[in-house]
Design a protein around this nucleic acid. Structure first.
Lengths: 339, 339
DNA sequence: CTGAAAGCGCTTACAG
DNA sequence: CTGAAAGCGCTTACAG
């Protein structure tokens, strides 16, 4: 194996200085008036020896790590892992790599992670912000490092974010239920201050109020799946006459379907279903379930567009871009017109 | 904001040398005979000022980055993202972070990534090896850096790996079908040399041969979902009399279910199904689908146990651990006894 | 018990 | 057109 070659080796071999080699390697030959002949010699030797700069040394010197920190609740949630993949693709194209970690609903851990990322001189951040970390994130932003939030924004914090139009998309979905004849619609969310969840609820309420319908909302005190199912069971027992239900997130929907199974409620005949976040299960369920699909590709694209333009200086750190993207309502037979 | 504090600042403030501060911070106070009083002063100031070492400088000096490279086909595949989450948890406990990237079936990209990881002085690797990268991986292993393969091993390469017992688990699943009265079983896999896929096929064949059954195997030339469905349609049309089918992987099963839908085959009545890899969809499908569940937690645990013991020197780099874990057959109604 | 100094491998302001 | 030298912030062998 090639015992790590360094700039000095190249310089010595060619009887020139490290400075010149460094300039050539970094494409500054022209700018620095290096003669074509010398530049070519360097390039040739670099190719021949397969020289690769030590990025650690480079980072220490320049203060740039070419690493982006990606922080989410749980990387194994489909929505997040899909974003992760797309972000990584874009980042790789520009020489950045992704360092990720899951906060797993643990704020202490999240704070630590932020600190660790900072120590590692991460150049930029992509974060789905856990509740309660608002002030930490403000501190981070104040250090003049680019931070793009996604999935949820935080009212009152001036920063870049890319989110789905939660309010509007749930409004549409609820309206779709009303149009199809449903009148007693339940909305199942979690007890939280997370903005995206509040927005989804708001969209629901707008329709309910406009149509003078009953406001059947369950806010689950979410601990785990089991506990969540227990609360849903109670809710469905009390509200026997629901003719439709909207689940405000992927994992809530999963628990909802489990609840139906346990209660022997057959969505096919008894109740219409809409879920926020589309995933394969919904397409294959019997009946196939109507879902609000977040525009994952567009979300990832926008995140990276903002982040990269800040990273390469095209966009001022202090100038904040806020992108709200429309979702798609995939109508399936779980919400057929009521007869 | 605290304009980054460094060791020198602490040393100056306390009128001692950077050496002493460094020793104390790295817990070598005793070993280096630093007086308790001095050590305490340092610790106090570190706490007060919230000093955090610059990990870049540390890495450059020590040659250790405290970063683990995680390389898979696609981080958004549920199996991989779940492993990612678990690995990250374990790694974090030991001060390591995960740098990931998806190779997306692109060997050139995979080679590049390996190179990039090397430049970044990744301390260790967790890899689901793409086909055709065998020699690259051997080179990597020869650089004496710990590499743990998972999901698939490569016969002939001496390295650490953690895999599921693919052969045995498919053998069991196939036997289960035979026991329940199925006699014309199809096996759908992809055209590949990937060892885990070959092993799954081998497990199937063992049962087929032992019972003198017909060997109905489809090896899909996998390009994309659409193309894959086309090939399955043809297969099912030719083999009208199949009474059961085993899908050799998650994504193949998804395409299989789509094919059934398009062909109007109702698995409920017409055909038994088994899928490799268990995921929520299978549990909720109608009928619920029998699945071979890989022991994800155990896989992740074993990977990290091996990797960490090599990283901290408890295990020789040259000593290779190879772990084969049993899978669980989750029997559901898609494979009920034939009547 | 403690410190001065070298060095990890780069980049870049400065000098010529 | 090119180079000597300082410095990024650590760690550690060596000296006392």
């Amino acid at each position: 194996m090639n015992t790590k070659i360094k700039i000095k080796d190249i310089a010595d071999e060619l009887n020139i200085s490290s400075t010149t080699v460094s300039f050539v390697i970094n494409g500054k030959a022209k700018e620095k008036n290096i003669s074509k002949a010398v530049a070519q010699k360097v390039l040739d030797l670099v190719a021949e020896w397969g020289y690769q700069p030590n990025s650690l040394a480079k980072s220490l010197r320049t203060g740039k790590s070419k690493i982006i920190g990606f922080l989410v609740d749980d990387i194994s949630e489909p929505f997040f892992s899909r974003i992760a993949r797309l972000i990584d693709e874009k980042a790789s194209e520009h020489g950045y790599k992704i360092l990720f970690s899951s906060t797993r609903n643990n704020n202490e851990k999240a704070k630590e992670l932020l600190q660790i990322f900072r120590d590692r001189h991460v150049d930029g951040y992509v974060i789905a912000l856990p509740e309660g970390l608002e002030s930490e994130i403000e501190k981070l932003i104040n250090t003049q490092v680019p931070v793009v939030l996604f999935d949820r924004y935080v009212p009152g914090i001036e920063t870049d974010y890319v989110v789905t139009n939660n309010d509007e998309s749930v409004f549409e979905a609820t309206q779709h239920l009303v149009n199809n004849g449903y009148r007693n619609i339940g909305f199942i969310t979690i007890e939280t201050e997370q903005q995206q969840m509040l927005d989804r609820l708001a969209g629901f309420k707008r329709v309910i109020e406009a149509n003078n319908l009953k406001n059947n909302v369950l806010k689950i005190d979410y601990q785990n799946s089991e506990n969540s199912i227990k609360q849903m069971k109670k809710f469905f027992e009390i509200n026997q006459n629901l003719d439709a239900v909207i689940f405000a997130a992927n994992y809530i929907c999963m628990d909802g379907l489990r609840t139906f199974k346990q209660l022997n409620i057959n969505p096919l005949n008894n109740i219409a279903i809409v879920s926020f976040d589309d995933f394969e299960l919904l397409e294959f369920y019997n009946p196939p379930i109507t879902a609000i699909a977040q525009p994952v590709e567009q979300i990832a694209e926008n995140i990276m567009k903002i982040l990269l333009s800040k990273l390469n200086g095209q966009l001022q750190i202090s100038e904040h871009k806020q992108v709200v993207l429309p979702a798609l309502l995939n109508v399936r037979s779980s919400t057929l017109k009521r007869v």
